[in-house]
Structures are given as structure tokens and as C-alpha cells.
Nucleic acid binder design. Structure first.
Length: 407
RNA sequence: CGGGCUGUAGCGCAGUUGGUAGCGCGCGUCGUUCGGGACGACGAGGCCGGCGGUUCAAGUCCGCCCAGCCCGACCA
């Protein structure tokens, strides 16, 4: 990709309203553009990052045998009435249709997937199975905040599993928990499994929290149980299970949450299977979410410095940020240009994605500042200086380490 | 949803006792620069968030509304 053609260019100044690191750098770098409170466009650079996150999730979830589908954001009111969430879920967006009636804008997808799964299954032989999608969700939050960390329209991977018995559900639940930790690790994050309230479904649910000062949740570690607990469970500074006195809380961002729904939704939609003996039994469900857009924001919160973003390798929009520094000697400039194009070509052969800052009118300082802001892991400079040594200069964004490499 | 703050050029901001709008960056042209956001000259760019009111006259005063940000509450 030629930087001269990239839409849009990085902003020189960060927007004033952006005070969280993710909003500041993602907007300034031209990754996202705010349209209204909690609603963002994902610009080409940002979409590259988002797609990488999504694809890591796809790889990991597909490996568990779940199948991807795509459900609508427009959802029938009746389904939400069936679960008492039409009036019960305060953040639900409700739309009026010109042909009459009301429609829910999907805040989540249990109301679609449960009747959908029911429509195509019946025998115990169909189970267990799992379906997921990566789709935008809509929640009418009273207060969107912190850039992409809490939006009203946001990306989410939502996975639903269907089981014959509790043991099978619990086994799958643990498999997902393990996979989640792996997903976050690949995203360059250290996430910790954290016990949280289970809502109406079970005693606990599990959250995946990334400890960072930008977090809006407080979590506590119980050194006796070796478990993190969400603030909402902790009463009077004591571990909710073993009652050990807990230390200071840590700020964390919730990037995933998994629930054993059990029969909460299958009951609402009368979703049953026929067992070996021809008897009807309720299907047990689990649901498992990862906020994809929030994950991108969290990665920025956890990986930046005063100059900009430091993308983890697997997430970076490009692997290499190539900078050509031109001087006034036209012959040398020509050499620099062809050397740069040769690097782009040879990297392409190894399917290494390069962002090439080919601008001839931008100063060295400007190009360096943009490179730091965009946070691509490897910065490569070709200039008169490096060509004199028949080399290129490679600087690691994270470590700052500079090395020379022969052309 | 309660409390606070803010809306003026693409971005960041100034605008005095009311007199019809300015700066920096960015953008365009030309020239000089060329390893950490270079410099000069000229130039383009405005529904001063919206509606209503007061006034000879409103970016400025008054009222209502809308939007954005922050704190809190909320977050199956």
C-alpha cells in the first residue's frame, strides 16, 4: 500500500474530545472516524486491524468445530416478547416499520438463534453443536464512552452451543474458556479469567479481563482460591467463596464473557430434543461473546506510548512501514525509489504486507512521526545514508532497536 | 437518567463594552529545504450547532431545542 494513496492520511493533531488512548490514536491515525456518540466508521487502516482480530477469532473458534453463520440485525418483536426482553432489556433499540409493527435492533442474538436451531433439530443425534457469527450489535447505552471501548453499535463475535446434558455443556464451556485465553494472547493481550455474576442463569459467569489502567471494571485476586473476582461479587473486601480478605482491586477491561444459559432460552422457545427413549427433554445452551471492536480498542490501550500505537505482530495492519527519504540529488532519489520498490516486491513474495511512505514532499520528521503513530511493528528506512552502505535501516517499533541490513 | 463542561474553516483554538469573523495546523500554486511533524510568498476555504426573541444592529444578550465530551448511575 502506498501511503500517498491511503485514505485517509493521519491527522496532525488528535481530536480534542478523545482523551482515552484508543480514541486518540485510532482517530488521529485514521483508523476510525466518529459519526456520533458511540458510533464509528472503520476506515481502511482500522478495518485491516479489525479483520485480523476477527480472523484470529475465526481460526480459533472454527478449530472447536463451531460453524459460522450470519443472522440479521433486524429482529422480530415477538421473539423478544417471548423472552420478556422486549421490555426487560433497557438498552434495546426499537424501530417502527412503515408497514406497521415494531422491530428490535439486535443487541444480541439468542432471540434469533434459539428458534433457528429449534427449526432444524429435534433428535438427540443432532447434538451437541455450536454456531457463531461476527456481527454488529446495537445497544442504546445511556453513556457511550472511551472511544471504541463502549459503543452503541459495535462488533461482536457471539457463539452459541447446544447440548443434551449439563456435563456436555460444562465441558464445552471449559474448552471455550481455554480457547479465549489463546485468542487474547494472539491479540497481544494478557487476559485473566474472572468470575462474575451469572445473571438469572447460574451462580457465576466468567469474564475475560485485560488488566490496564484504562479499565472500567475493578477485579480482585484471591490468592487462596487463585481466582479473579469481579467487583460486583465482592462484598466487604472478602472473597465471595472462601471469605479471605482481598487486596486492592485492579482496573480491567472486559473483552469477553461466557455464560451457561442452560434452559433459559430453550424454555422460552420450547426448544426440546427427543432422547433415545422417545422422551422430550429441554436443550441446554451456552453463549460466549467477544467484543471485536472493543478488543481493538483494548489492544491500543495496552500497547501504546506517547508517540502512538504499538501493534502486536498478528494484529498490525501492515507488517512493515517502509520509508523512503529523498534528498535534492535526483539521481540518488531515483536509486532510493527503485531500492524501495525492490523491497516492496521482495517482501510481497514472502506475503509480507508493506505500507510504503512514498511521499516526496514530506519531511523525514513527519514520516517518522506518522510511522510511530500508526504503530506498524517494523519501520524500514531507505535513504542516501543507507544506500551508501548498500543497506536498509530497520527499527523495531516496540523495542526501538535499530539494525542495518544489507540490500 | 442525574450532575458538570463544550459547540466558531477539515483539525486545534481566539473573538474585548453587541457594529456583520480571526490565528495555528492542514489544503492549493511557486520557490528554498530534506534523518524526528522544515521555511518564505501568494491563495482558497465560514448556515459562528439549530430555531425563536430583544435590538437600528447578535458569534456576542435572553429562551427553547439539538449535538459531543467528562463524572456518576446503569451494563443479560
Amino acid at each position: 500500500m502506498l501511503y500517498s494513496k491511503l485514505f485517509p492520511k493521519a491527522l496532525r493533531q488528535a481530536p480534542k474530545d478523545a482523551d482515552s488512548a484508543n480514541a486518540k490514536y485510532l482517530i488521529q491515525g485514521g483508523f476510525i472516524h466518529q459519526e456520533m456518540a458511540g458510533v464509528y466508521s472503520w476506515l481502511p487502516l482500522g478495518l485491516q486491524v479489525l479483520r485480523k482480530v476477527e480472523n484470529i477469532i475465526r481460526e480459533e473458534i472454527n478449530a472447536l468445530g463451531a460453524q459460522e453463520l450470519l443472522m440479521p440485525a433486524l429482529q422480530p418483536k415477538d421473539n423478544w416478547l417471548a423472552t420478556d426482553r422486549w421490555d426487560g432489556l433497557d438498552i434495546l433499540f426499537k424501530l417502527n416499520s412503515k408497514i406497521g409493527g415494531e422491530i428490535a435492533l439486535g443487541a444480541t442474538a439468542e432471540e434469533i438463534i434459539t428458534p433457528l436451531a429449534k427449526a432444524y433439530t429435534g433428535s438427540y443425534q443432532d447434538f451437541p453443536f455450536a454456531l457463531y457469527q461476527i456481527q454488529n450489535k446495537y445497544r442504546d447505552e445511556l453513556r457511550a464512552k472511551a472511544g471504541v471501548l463502549r459503543g452503541r453499535e459495535f462488533g461482536m463475535k457471539d457463539l452459541y452451543s447446544f447440548h443434551l446434558d449439563l456435563g456436555c455443556l460444562e465441558k464445552y464451556y471449559e474448552k471455550i474458556a481455554k480457547t479465549y485465553l489463546n485468542i487474547f494472547k494472539r491479540c497481544g493481550l494478557k487476559a485473566v479469567r474472572t468470575r462474575a455474576t451469572g445473571g438469572a442463569f447460574s451462580k457465576f459467569s466468567d469474564e475475560f479481563q485485560v488488566i490496564t489502567s484504562a479499565g472500567e471494571d475493578n477485579i480482585y485476586y484471591c490468592s487462596k482460591c487463585k481466582v479473579y473476582y469481579n467487583n460486583e461479587l465482592v462484598r466487604a473486601g472478602k472473597c465471595p467463596e472462601c471469605k479471605t480478605k482481598l487486596g486492592k482491586p485492579e482496573r480491567a477491561i472486559e473483552v469477553g464473557n461466557i455464560f451457561k444459559l442452560k434452559t433459559k432460552f430453550s424454555d422460552a422457545f420450547n426448544f426440546k430434543y427427543i432422547d433415545k427413549n422417545g422422551k422430550e427433554k429441554p436443550v441446554l445452551m451456552g453463549c460466549y461473546g467477544i467484543g471485536t471492536t472493543r478488543l481493538v480498542g483494548t489492544i491500543v490501550e495496552a500497547n501504546h506510548d506517547d508517540h502512538g500505537i504499538i501493534w502486536p505482530n498478528e494484529i498490525a495492519p501492515y507488517k512493515m512501514h517502509l520509508i523512503a527519504l529523498f534528498g535534492k540529488d535526483k539521481k540518488i532519489n531515483q536509486k532510493i525509489k527503485s531500492a524501495a520498490l525492490a523491497v516492496v516486491a521482495s517482501e510481497a513474495k514472502q506475503s509480507c504486507e508493506v505500507l510504503y511512505d512514498d511521499r516526496e514532499d514530506a519531511s523525514a520528521g513527519e514520516k517518522f512521526a506518522v510511522a510511530d503513530l500508526l504503530g506498524i511493528p517494523e519501520r524500514v528506512v531507505i535513504s542516501e545514508k543507507t544506500l551508501a552502505k548498500n543497506s536498509i535501516e530497520i527499527k523495531n517499533r516496540k523495542s526501538g532497536k535499530v539494525t542495518m541490513k544489507k540490500l
